[in-house]
Design a protein around this nucleic acid. Structure first.
Lengths: 224, 224, 224, 224
DNA sequence: CATGAATGAGGTTTCATTCAT
DNA sequence: TATGAATGAAACCTCATTCAT
């Protein structure tokens, strides 16, 4: 829905596209580890190079600058997440909106459980990207919100859900996913992944299911 | 409840406590602006000094290092937030748990609305602090979660609420507050503060109010 | 005899050992000149870099800190001195202790005549080194004292010398060497190198040669 | 004999001469301790001020710069040493040159034993003084050498001593004094003060007493 | 394609000295 | 006379980036 062509480009000196893809992948994998441990600013190109078992000069054959690696990590992760959830959604077509929602929430949380570092990292380091690079990331996040929004709207249509602002609820669900990654220092102390999934799912369902007792919203909304 | 003595200390060369307090305050104010614009790592001490209309040397009379300024910003904000909410809670003693909860949620969101920069900043830069400094921040956050937890438990006692894991719900509420600050690039595009408050409050109430239809949690919990 | 492994280590970013050795040598040469002119503290890394015709950043590929350059100068000089005298001693095996002593004293003084700057420098700047670095220097000095001590003891054994505290006499000889470098502002005003060598040699011989008229020492000594 | 008016002057803002003298004395005492612990360059004016229980601004009422304190320490010590030995010499008039020499050597070594720090300090930090300040120090040292030289010459006149270069021997004796302070890390490990005094005295006497067996010096000398 | 030595601008921090109080 | 807050130049050191090999 809001998928845009990437507006931030990566420099390379190589013309062998396959090699470029392979090397960039490798660098992104290794740099993620290094960045997660120490933060973007505190990690030097030398350290990244060592983590990649490459010379630092060679990094510059595949990325034009340190920034571009950062962008690539965050953008790759966010795009993959969007893609992963989009694919997953396709398999839910036959389910009821409620069941589909439960499944998608679990999938979302699973993704963040498996990619905790990148989620945290995205929150912390996106600000270090130039404006147009940031836009790409935001676009991917919009795609993910949209997935939930569509599901919620189909539930409204089917009469299962009552929601004043489905896009807002979609966004809230997405941020609950983030929370599992961002606040692990707190959450992991008390609850297992299963407990967290079940409790949050339960709360969301209570909030969206047909019900007449809601405190009225003010009705104002810019939602399209 | 989990208020601990600060474990991270600030160096100063001055012995005039009032002056130290005044200058530190001033520096914290100005540095916050500078950091929010450009991020911690990208902001130089020279820039901070200029923002404070001080010589860079003089900064070091009131803070021992750049780190200490960062800590001071985050710690001051988080402590003040905890204190502010704790004070506010005292005025809610006479209300029903439901009403008190509604009020406290609004207060929490108001705080984040007025201190968006610091909230975002806390998420992004806490990792740049040494471990013991980070602990201080976490402690303040625990205090805030505890406020909500106590309220929820009193609602359970009074029979108004049904909640499996009150601490988790408290935590969820707290992160909804963060969300208003962290995701303003998204939220502000579509909704006003009022809408956001009302909708989130409504969703939370639906989730906590006496109700027998919950999807069962797994029952396992480390919550005390 | 008291040769120990070095306890103070030098950082480098390079793995090409030959290059490291070459560059360090070059830096040590140039830095020695700069330090001797202005003292360690008064010489900046930029000046050292300029003296080496290097960028200041590149210095840090071969030394981790200014300290390490200082250490390297002093340690290199002291080790080389010890080695030089040890090698020279080997050629004296066939001589009588008296003749050997005369030769070794001259060699010692020659070394200090040719390395006046480093000797002075060692006295002035060793205190700027960390404790373990200082230990390395002391060890080399012990080796030099030992050379003389062994010679004196062999003279005692052969009946040529009478000495109550051979180690102390050895030490005294070593410091006479230092004196030629440390007090040149005075000595050079009045005497040539030859005069100095001859006079000091003569005085030492008078002091060590079999003679029964010595003022008795107190006999107490920790000498092993 | 070579007492010159001081060529390096100390700034003060005060006109109360007694106060100036008192304060300067105090500062010199305290600064010596501080410098000895950490070296001149590594000691800050703030630390000196704290050691003096003064404000750093006030230091500048009595000394114009950090250099001037350094100069004052070294110059005071060296002058006092010269004066002390000169006074002591007056009491030796009635003795034989040999006895007087023995007494004066002991006095010299006693001084260095009691003022080890300043001796070491003088060697290490004199280079940090401007040329004309350095001259003052050298002059005091000349006075001390002269004392011994006069004594040696009177011994030659009386027929007790045979010395080719009395000034050189005088200088050697003076440096033996320095050695006790400079090389305490070595000497103290093995010998007591008494042993050191006795042994060195004995060696010196052997070297200066009428004797025909000396290796001939080359006879060349600039000694006046 | 790959290396890693070299660059040098610019970062944080220190500290001798001044000057208003 | 005494204070100590303020200054700002300059110190050490880092590190993204380039380029000869």
């Amino acid at each position: 829905m809001c998928k845009l062509a990437s507006t931030f480009s990566l420099r390379t000196f190589s013309t062998d596209e396959d090699l470029v893809k392979k090397r960039r992948n490798h660098i992104v994998q290794c740099a993620t580890k290094a960045f997660t441990k120490q933060g973007f600013s505190q990690t030097t190109m030398r350290e990244i190079a060592k983590a990649c078992q490459m010379s630092s000069g060679n990094l510059y054959h595949y990325f034009g600058a340190k920034d571009e690696i950062l962008y690539s990590i965050i953008n790759t992760a966010t795009s993959l997440q969007a893609e992963c959830l989009e694919n997953f959604t396709r398999d839910l077509d036959s389910m009821s909106p409620t069941d589909a929602l439960v499944q998608l929430i679990r999938k979302l949380l699973q993704w963040h459980d498996e990619n905790q570092d990148v989620t945290l990292f995205t929150y912390q380091e996106t600000k270090n990207l130039p404006r147009n690079a940031r836009q790409d990331i935001f676009d991917s996040e919009c795609r993910i919100v949209s997935l939930f929004e569509k599901l919620l709207r189909s539930g409204i249509d089917s009469g299962e859900f009552t929601i004043n602002h489905p896009k807002l609820m979609a966004h809230t669900i997405v941020t609950i996913g983030h929370t599992w990654a961002l606040r692990r220092w707190f959450l992991r102390r008390y609850w297992t992944f299963e407990t967290f999934v079940n409790e949050q799912t339960s709360a969301i369902l209570k909030a969206v299911r047909r019900d007449t007792s809601a405190i009225a919203g003010d009705g104002s909304s810019n939602e399209g």
